[in-house]
Design a protein around this nucleic acid. Structure first.
Lengths: 240, 240
DNA sequence: GAGTGGTCTAGACCACCAA
DNA sequence: TGGTGGTCTAGACCACTCA
C-alpha cells in the first residue's frame, strides 16, 4: 500500500521533537531539554537522542551551543540573518538594506498560488508589495502572498515596525518559523510597472526569483516573487 | 597566529581519507576499505572511523551502500548525473540533452580567470565553447576554461566521445573529480554573438550562470559561463 | 554464511559555560 | 562546581548483499 513504517529509533525521536516544535511546546529561541533529559523522557540512550538532534541541527531547525544547551533556531540571530537572501554585491562591499512598503492588502488566491500554498482557490490571502533598497538604490521589487487565516495581525504597521524582516514578524507575532524554501529562477524583461518601480527602462533584464517557504512538516506558508536588478549584484549559490 | 590545530580524532581521520583521495589511492568509483579495516589501520574505534566517513558522505564525496561497502562518489551514476545542472523544464517534462561542440582551443588566461582558477595570469588554458540542446532546442551557450597543464588530453574528440559530459571526462581521463562548485547568477541581455548562437534577438533576457568547480582540498579546477534561455526552463534551488 | 554498513547502548572523559 | 554539549570506546544486534 504505502511506504513501510519501519523507522530507526532516532528518527522516531526526531519526529517527536518536530511534533513539539509544531505544537509550540518550544518556540523560536527557546532551549529544548538536554540530551539526557530527552533520553530519559523517551526511554532511549543519550546517543540516540543525540542523533535525532544531530539531524535537526543539520537542517538548521535546532542550534547547539556547547556548554549551554540546544535551542530552537530563529531568524533573529546575526549569524543567520537573511539566510534566504542570496544577493551579494559584485565588489563585495557591505551594504545597508532598506525596506519600502508599497502596499499591504487583502485579496483572493489565484488557482496557481492556491496550488503552491496548498489552500483553496479563491480563499483569502494577504498581498504585500515592497521595494528593497541596497545602499539607497532600489534593487528588488517584491510581491509576497500569505494565507490570511494563518497570518492574522500582519499589516502595514507591523511590517514598518520590523523594518520588513518578514520572517522575524512571522516568528515573533505568530510563532511561525520557516525552515526551508524552494526557489525558481529565470531571466525576464521588466514590464512597465516593474520598470517604473525600479526606475528602469521597460525590457531591462531582471532576475526573477519565485520562492515558496515551508514551515515544520513541509507545510508551505508563503509565496514570494522578487524581481531583481543584477547589474551590480549576483545571486550566489554553493553546489555540493 | 593562525587557527589552533586541535582537531577531534575523527576529523584527523577525515583528513587522512581526503589525502588518500587526492593521492589517487582510491579513484572515482573504487571501494574504500571497510569501517573495521580503517579503524584498525588508524588505530581508532569503528565508531570514530564511521564518523569521518559520515562527514565525507554528507559532502557527497563518498557513497555508502549497505551490505556492499563505501565507495568514492562519481559523476557517472544515474542518481547523481547532472548533479550540478539545476535547469528544469517548467512543465516538468523529461527531456533529451544533446551537446554540440562549437570549438576547443588553446588560449591564455586573463587576469580575472587566472585569479579564480588560482593560476598565473597568461598561463596556458583550454577554452571550450558549446551549445546545449534540450529536446533539440538550443538553450545554453557554454564557455568552459581549464588550466591546460592539468587537463592534458582533453580535446574535441574526447568531448564528442563522452557526449559532452565534462565531469565524466575529467574523472575517466584524469581521475579529477569535482566535489563542489560556486555559482553566481545574474540576468543579462543577449549580445549579438550569443543571440546568433541561440537563435534569438539581441537583448533577449538570459540567465548568466558563472561557475567555479573545485576538486578535493578546495582546489579550483574549472571555470564556466553558461548563458541560458529561461523561457521554458527554470533554475531550481533548495534553501535550508 | 560471511562481510558490509546501520542502529543502539552504556559508560567514560573532555571542553565550554554560568553561577 | 555542576550542567551542557562533544568525543571516543567496546560491544551487541539488525539489515542488506553476494557467493
Amino acid at each position: 500500500m504505502s511506504t513501510p513504517v519501519f523507522q530507526p529509533l532516532y528518527r522516531q525521536i526526531k519526529a517527536l521533537l518536530t511534533q513539539g516544535l509544531i505544537s509550540g511546546e518550544w518556540g523560536p529561541g527557546d532551549a529544548i531539554p538536554s540530551e539526557m533529559e530527552l533520553a530519559a523522557r523517551f526511554g532511549v540512550s543519550q546517543g540516540t537522542a543525540r542523533k535525532a538532534i544531530d539531524e535537526l541541527a543539520a537542517e538548521n531547525i535546532l542550534m547547539r551551543r556547547q556548554g549551554k544547551g540546544t535551542f530552537v533556531a530563529t531568524h533573529s540571530e546575526n549569524v543567520v540573518k537573511l539566510r534566504f537572501l542570496r544577493l551579494v554585491s559584485v565588489d563585495g562591499s557591505k551594504e545597508t538594506l532598506y525596506n519600502k512598503l508599497l502596499s499591504c492588502e487583502r485579496a483572493t488566491a489565484s488557482a496557481s498560488i492556491a496550488r503552491m500554498l496548498e489552500i483553496k482557490s479563491g480563499s483569502a490571502v494577504i498581498e504585500i508589495k515592497r521595494l528593497l533598497l541596497f545602499s539607497n538604490k532600489p534593487l528588488i521589487l517584491d510581491r509576497i502572498i500569505l494565507p490570511a487565516n494563518a497570518f492574522k495581525g500582519v499589516n502595514a504597521e507591523r511590517i514598518e515596525q520590523f523594518n520588513g524582516s518578514m520572517y522575524r514578524i512571522y516568528e515573533s507575532l505568530l510563532g511561525i518559523r520557516m525552515v526551508r524554501a524552494e526557489e525558481r529562477l529565470a531571466a525576464i524583461g521588466a514590464d512597465t510597472e516593474t520598470a517604473e518601480a525600479l526606475n528602469l527602462k521597460p525590457g531591462t533584464p531582471l532576475l526573477s526569483i519565485e520562492r515558496v517557504s515551508y514551515t515544520y512538516g513541509d507545510k508551505p506558508m508563503e509565496w514570494r516573487l522578487g524581481l531583481c536588478l543584477t547589474d551590480d549584484h549576483h545571486y550566489m549559490n554553493h553546489l555540493e
